[in-house]
Structures are given as structure tokens and as C-alpha cells.
Design a protein around this nucleic acid. Structure first.
Lengths: 352, 352
DNA sequence: CTGAAAGCGCTTACAG
DNA sequence: CTGAAAGCGCTTACAG
């Protein structure tokens, strides 16, 4: 201790240093102890005489000392933040997911680094690399490719895939029962007597699309009567879907019932029906996978598979921390049930 | 260099070390150079012979070396992340804002630490403290209290307040022209001939509420005819607002036009009107501050002040980085204009 | 009960 | 052109 700026019991402690933030060195000098002792007093690890502890704490308080988390993590070789990577924060599904994950992470004392890859696999990989550079404790993501999870895995970063699964058997995942819920909702349409049914989908390579399509097909196969079921690629955005569905409904063999595989497609379909003056459900039945606020506001409301997105986020955080605690437990997939919110957007097909 | 595990030109470089991540020491040893040289080769700062540079880069690549951002920042005393603190990620306004800020930050090479305080000033302060501990380069927030910004300011963290302003003159802020937009939308209602108009508001202490109320009052004052205008505290959540508005509409002096000061209150008001079977706009006119997806989906759509939330986020990021570059420039407030999306939810009052 | 020293992973003057 | 040394802010065995 070359400088004792403050006598041990000085009532007036120095104010915040002018140009820079207080470090533990400042605290130690202010309290006239060594950095070791100051550290022990503040972290609570290791012994410090009660009086000294108090003095150090008061000094830290007076200096507005906030330990540098980066330096602490570097020394301790641990991390107190989780990385979260979603596809589109503007979509309420991902926003709700991020909200749930952030809340649960905070509860455990972890900060959330959030990235939005906008559906681009390149950005996704960049974000993953940033997470590795930041040495996050783990990553929760809605993957776009198998590469990300592999990459993170290779860099020994615990990963949980949410919503869809690209890395089964090697990474943990939390998903909803896409197949089962899609089956039930399709069965609802079939029970109304529809014969021409379309599944609107963005893609069928991800497990979400594949499983929802499988549930749809399964219900159709088991219908016990001839059904013209077709799968329509309706694009990724509302306007794209709106145009596709408009074309579909104006075409020669227009379906009488639509099953939109997510909320974006449902919005496009709904707007298309409006554009053409088709009444729901009298002229056209519509069901959706994914609930959204507007679906309970339009009249009639849109029957939808309501995923409990908050529960999804919570389950992902639990899975991540279990993985952090037990790096080499076998990979697990958690599947959550989803309920169907019946709202009245289905009816028997029009008697054409 | 005590260990030369690899000859300078060895074609087979060692694979990832088994239990731990590669460090610059591993890269240096693998490429048979000093850590200094390895660092210079990888960062591009300082001179390195071209051949050596190549060798180092290949070694780093082979080892899957990703520099520890925390260690780098510690050494360089800089930060490459921004903190973002919003009130409710489940509200599309905040989600869009976070999306915009995240995108612009990434574009500048900064990661985003995101927190959601759920409307609690205590959590808000905790999050601010976490940001200080993480030594973020700056913070963008939708403040709940004057304390946060003061706290961050005191800790020399550049701050930009968005949407509302608690720290005028001392912190930068990016807001929309709440007063002007509220005035215009109110004038629209008055032009339809309404006499009993209610402003639904959550609170009037924040600049948002205060300025929207001021715009409302200003339009009423200038109406040039007697108007019964009242301000109704309608709570913070959809269900709360829904009940309040139901009570209001069933009361003795029910208004014929409602101006909801944000999208949550608008949703409550809209649902309340549905509950009571009031037709919009025949029985009741409704306008909203804040646009939301459902407002253009219900029939008729809800006329709303459409803030350009993405532009808001972008402006906030610009302001933050200007502040980071110039710590002691005078504080600035940027005000963005907002347009009114006319949709048909207003009409003359019913001829009762 | 406390402090000197080492070291986490990095970068950067500076010496040669 | 390259490397040894110092140091960012912290914590933690370990010596006394």
C-alpha cells in the first residue's frame, strides 16, 4: 500500500474518481486494506474481520464500486450470461419466447445476450460466433440450420434448440407436440365435413413444418373417406402468403378449409379472405398453428393451436441449466403439449 | 516458448484441445511464434511477416480459436456491447424497438444485452447495475424512473432514453411528437362532431402520457365550441382497461368517442365495445396512439397514430454512438414525427 | 486474520 | 521483424 489516501476511520470517504470508474484497488486504498482483503470482504468468500468487512463495504458503497463482471469471469473462468438467438423478434412468437427466457435467466442471476438473425443462416452463424467470443454459459436458439448447433457444440457451449430441432440426439431440445396438435386441429376440419383442405406451410424441412405436415396427413389418412388434401408453400411473409392464398382461393379447385402452419401464414390467409370478400367460416374455414392477439379480436375469432410460449421458454432455460450442470448427460428432447383454442372460424363447407 | 508441439510447417495441426477452449497461447505454440506475434497476426495491428501471418491464421482456424471478448475488452478497456432495457418485451412496441436497436447495434459490431423490467423500477435498477457490471458501452432504455438514468449517468455510462424522458437536459433522448400527434387525432374526433370525448390513459407523469394528454387538451381547447372532455385512468393491462371502459360506457355520461393513449388500452377498449355490442364506429368512435397488427385486421380497422418504431430504435442507436464518441457534447432530444393511419373507426356521434 | 503473488486471456508499447 | 514484459480488474490458494 503505497498511498493511504484515507485514514482507517475517516468519516468522509472520497467521492467517485473523476475520469474513471472505481476498481477494487480504489476500494482497498480507501479502506486501507489489501486488494485481497477487499475482495474477500465484498465477495463474502474467505475470512475477514467483521469490522474490516464493514469498512470495506462502506468504502465500496461510497465509491460507487461495481465489480467488473468481465474481469471476475475471466479470473473465475465462469460466465453469468446466456445467449439467445431467435429468428424474428418482431414476430410475437419469438418475442414471447425471448421474454420468457430472459425472465427465467435473470431469476437465476444470468444476463441475456439477445440476437435476431432475421432468418439468415449467415447471421445465425455470426451470432453464434459472437456468443462463443463472449463466453456465454450457454445458448438457447430457434435454429435455422444444423451448422449453428454443431458449431456451438464443437466449441463446448451448451445448447438448447427450441421450437424446432436440427441436432437431435446431440443437442437438447424443447419442442411442442406439433404432430399431435396439427392432427387434432385437422380432425376438427374433417369433422365439419370438408373434402378439399389445404395446409399452408412455409417449408417442410424443419421439424416444425415436417411434423405439422405429418399430423395433417395422418388425420387425412385416417378420415375413412376420400379427402383432397394438398400442401401449399405459401412463403415466409404476410404479403407473400396473402397473394398465394388469394390465387389459391380464386383457382379452379379452391379448398373450403385452410390450415395455416403458423401465425404469419394465418394472417396472410385471413387478409386474403377479406380481400376476396370470403366470409369466415361460412365460405371458408380457417385454423392456425400459433395463437396471436388478433386471432381473438377479429370476428369470429380464429381457432388456433395455442402454444404456451412462456412455458416453452422456461423449459428451455431449465434444460440449459441442467446441461450446464451436467455436461455429459445424454441429450434430451422435451415435448410440450399444446391446446387448441376453439373460436368459431370453422363450419361445414358451403353447399356449392 | 518452452514447448514446440508442432514444427513450423507441420501440415497436420493439432485438433481442438480436449477439455478446454483454445487460447492465444495454444495458437502461438501451434504456429511456433510468441503470443505477441500471434496477437498481431490475428488482430491485424502491428507488423507481422506475411508468411508468419498466414501460418498463425491457419493454426487459429485449425484450433477453432475464438478470442475471448471479455479478456480483450479488459485489456483494451473498451466494450463491444450495448445494454437495452425495455418495459415489456411481450408488447409489440417494445419488441419492435428491441429488434431495431439490436439490428443497428449488430451492424456496428456491437452485441446487445437485453433486459425486460416488467414495469418494475426495482428490476430496472437491478438491470442497470448489471449493465454497469458488464461494462457495456452504453445503454438504451425506456425508463420507468429518473433514478436509472441518473445512476447510469453517475457511473459514466452513456444513456439514451427512448419513448419517454425522465432526465431531460442531462441525458439524450429520442421521442416521438406525442403532443402533435395526439392533437391531430383528437382534432379528427372533434371534426366528426363529438361532444363527449374520453382520453384513456395509464398515467400522466411520464412525458408520453403528459404530452399525449396535452395534445388532447389543446385540441379540445381550440375546438371553438363546448366539449366535455375527460381523462380516464384505465390501468396498465388489457383486462383492467376492458373493465374500466365497460363501466365507462355503461355509465350515465358515456362518451361517444374514445382516444386510447396506447395499444394496450386500445385493445381493452375495443374488447369492451365488443362485450357491450357497441358497433364501431356507428355507436362509438375509437382512435389509438400506437399501431398494432390487429388494428388493421378488425373490421373496420382502428385509426391509430403509427409510430415508426424501427426508426425510433435506429435513431436511439445513432444518438448513443454519437454520445459514446463525444462524451461531453450537450444533451440532445430528438423528436420524430408520427403519422396517423386513418382506418375508419371514427364517425359522427349517434343521433341519440 | 491479512497480504503478496500468481494468473485468468488478451494486447501493446518497447527493446533488440 | 519478433518476443519478453507489463498490465487491464479481478480472485484465490498460500504463507505468515
Amino acid at each position: 500500500m503505497e498511498r493511504l489516501t484515507v485514514a482507517p476511520d475517516a468519516p468522509d470517504l472520497p467521492a467517485l474518481p473523476p475520469g474513471r470508474r472505481a476498481t477494487i484497488k480504489d476500494v482497498a486504498e480507501g479502506a486501507a486494506v489489501s486488494r485481497s482483503t477487499a475482495s474477500r470482504a465484498l465477495t463474502g468468500r474467505g475470512y475477514v474481520a467483521p469490522g474490516v468487512r464493514e469498512r470495506v463495504r462502506r468504502t465500496a458503497q461510497a465509491l460507487g464500486y461495481v465489480p467488473d463482471a468481465g474481469a471476475r469471469n475471466l479470473r473465475q473462468q465462469v460466465s453469468r450470461s446466456v445467449g439467445v438467438l431467435v429468428s424474428d423478434l418482431r414476430n410475437s412468437f419469438y418475442a414471447d419466447l425471448a421474454a420468457g427466457v430472459g425472465q427465467q435467466s435473470r431469476r437465476r442471476g444470468y444476463a441475456m445476450m439477445l440476437s435476431d438473425d432475421n432468418g439468415s443462416p449467415e447471421r445465425e452463424l455470426e451470432a453464434a460466433e459472437a456468443f462463443v467470443a463472449l463466453r456465454v454459459a450457454g445458448v438457447i436458439l430457434t435454429p435455422l440450420s444444423a451448422e449453428v448447433s454443431e458449431y456451438l457444440h464443437r466449441h463446448r457451449v451448451p445448447v438448447v434448440e427450441v421450437d424446432r430441432q436440427f441436432c437431435p440426439g446431440r443437442c437438447d431440445a424443447v419442442v411442442v407436440d406439433n404432430r399431435g396438435a396439427a392432427r387434432r386441429v385437422t380432425e376438427g376440419l374433417l369433422a365439419q365435413g370438408h373434402v378439399r383442405i389445404a395446409l399452408l406451410i412455409d417449408e417442410a424441412d424443419w421439424t416444425t413444418g415436417r411434423d405439422r405436415a405429418a399430423g395433417f396427413a395422418g388425420a387425412v389418412d385416417d378420415a375413412g373417406r376420400p379427402v383432397e388434401a394438398f400442401v401449399v408453400r405459401a412463403g415466409w411473409h404476410v404479403e407473400e402468403a396473402r397473394e398465394r392464398v388469394r390465387a389459391l382461393l380464386e383457382g379452379p379447385s379452391a379448398p373450403t378449409a385452410l390450415f395455416a402452419a403458423n401465425n404469419v401464414l394465418a394472417e396472410g390467409a385471413w387478409r386474403a379472405a377479406q380481400d376476396l370478400g370470403r366470409r369466415i367460416p361460412e365460405d371458408l374455414s380457417l385454423v392456425s398453428f400459433d395463437d396471436a392477439a388478433w386471432m381473438s379480436m377479429v370476428g369470429p375469432g380464429v381457432t388456433a393451436v395455442a402454444q404456451d410460449v412462456v412455458a416453452l421458454g422456461e423449459a428451455a432455460v431449465s434444460a440449459l441449466f441442467e446441461r450446464i450442470d451436467q455436461a455429459d448427460a445424454p441429450a434430451r428432447t422435451v415435448m410440450l403439449a399444446a391446446r387448441v383454442a376453439e373460436r368459431g372460424s370453422t363450419a361445414p363447407p358451403p353447399a356449392s
